[in-house]
Design a protein around this nucleic acid. Structure first.
Lengths: 252, 252
DNA sequence: CGACATATTGATGGTAGTCAAACCTGGTGG
DNA sequence: CCACCAGGTTTGACTACCATCAATATGTCG
């Protein structure tokens, strides 16, 4: 099984670890809330790589979390060009609309085999800020975080060179992986193909390849088949004009 | 109808007309709600061109509507490069965060002199879906609309050529102006300089100029100093792979 | 092993950036 | 009234970044 090899290589992780770490990084959760998060992750389903999680125009009925594996939100143009809006990493929430909206404005596609858990019940809890302030704030922050990533993405695409774009994407992913327990400076998962990076960054796969080569030559990163190591995070961040953390979020 | 003469002259619109038309295009409003919208617009303040409406990181305390004039949301990079995320047109709401978030992730800048009205009270009404379903749905839809514009913007920047990007932007603006009473096919306001278009589309002002020239040569558009006429909307939309209207929004 | 996807490298061309100069146009003030 | 100026537009010449096409590795899985 692909899932086994992937897990054996890295640390053996509990099914709930990514979601738990992710939410905890967004707001402090009560014992009860943490317990609910763990319970939620107990029931998960496997989805193969390359499958559609939902499609543009769908009614969003099934809020969910990614427990393992990667996915992306994207749009496919009439002539087959693809634009990836953002990547979904383990621990990320998806499939719930902003502020009452229930229609998907993008499609979502798995990039690797993934494990998915429904978070219906967490989302309902988050709707009661008085009883569950932690979860409530975490869900608001999760959405805000996604909005910020999208704005950063616009800046990458509009203003940065291929070199800067790639640096920016890699630091961003590195930081996000850090939040779910992968220490920066070590080898972390990187299952994206160069074509996927190209579809996200508005570059051809060939040019992604050449640019990665340059980053490697300069000893800023090190690449393996499905993992990566950021050697000089600060240098990469400087190249990319990368900003982290998110602007502080107000409490409701 | 008073609106007709106003439209023909291109000026002398009622202060509330743009906001009223905009909200009405998003949801049907009750008489009471419409009356409140008009009252809200009775108190407005003038802001000069080039002023900051709010700044990245600010706490959003003053939800407002643009009654006249244009503005934009943007970010300025460390080295002075600017990326415009979207344009605010008369009738547009701004300065209220998504889903409980109260921090501005972008700055907002006026591009012309504008008139602004606080919509605090409308926003509060929108928070009571049972009493004010129309306003409530309109505010949700307004936010969803902005999200869709941002996603479209990513596609423009990532996948389209300068020619396509400009066509896409112009059709989008043309449609939005249509919603607030400027008939497509006639001369409509276009106060953007070529530099502003470039900052939005990730192009140099010089290249915007050349590309506009091409669109004019092909008799797709006609440009005056501060106004524009889209001669062949369908052709422009085809070039840009433009999609309208928004995906239908579900009722709450 | 053979089929297939992905990565790598080279050669070539087109799209769009940069630099620079000229040209409007509307506003200001002598 | 005209000179002047600032900001915006237009055009040309040159450059560079990145796409495309093509061919070869490398790797993975049935």
């Amino acid at each position: 099984m692909a899932a086994d090899t992937a897990r054996n290589r890295g640390l053996r992780r509990k099914p709930y670890e990514a979601l738990w770490r992710h939410l905890a990084s967004l707001a402090s959760l009560s014992d009860q809330e943490m317990s609910m998060v763990r319970q939620t992750c107990a029931v998960a389903s496997e989805v193969a790589a390359g499958a559609e999680l939902y499609s543009e125009g769908d009614v969003l009925r099934k809020p969910a979390a990614l427990l393992s594996g990667w996915a992306c939100r994207l749009r496919v143009l009439a002539d087959g060009r693809r634009q990836i809006f953002d990547f979904l990493l383990p621990g990320d929430l998806f499939g719930y609309g902003a502020a009452g909206n229930r229609i998907a404005f993008t499609s979502a596609l798995t990039l690797t085999a993934v494990r998915v858990a429904s978070v219906d019940c967490l989302l309902e809890m988050a709707g009661e800020p008085d009883r569950f302030p932690g979860l409530s704030r975490a869900f608001v922050a999760a959405r805000a975080r996604q909005d910020v990533f999208l704005l950063n993405h616009v800046v990458r695409l509009g203003q940065q060179t291929a070199y800067e774009r790639l640096a920016h994407l890699l630091v961003e992913l590195s930081h996000r992986l850090g939040e779910i327990g992968h220490e920066t400076g070590t080898f972390v998962p990187m299952p994206l193909t160069q074509e996927m990076m190209g579809d996200a960054l508005g570059l051809s796969a060939v040019h992604v390849n050449r640019t990665l080569k340059q980053l490697r030559r300069e000893r800023l990163i090190e690449l393996r088949a499905t993992s990566m190591r950021v050697i000089k995070p600060a240098a990469l961040a400087a190249i990319a004009d990368f900003r982290w953390p998110l602007p502080a979020l107000s409490s409701p």
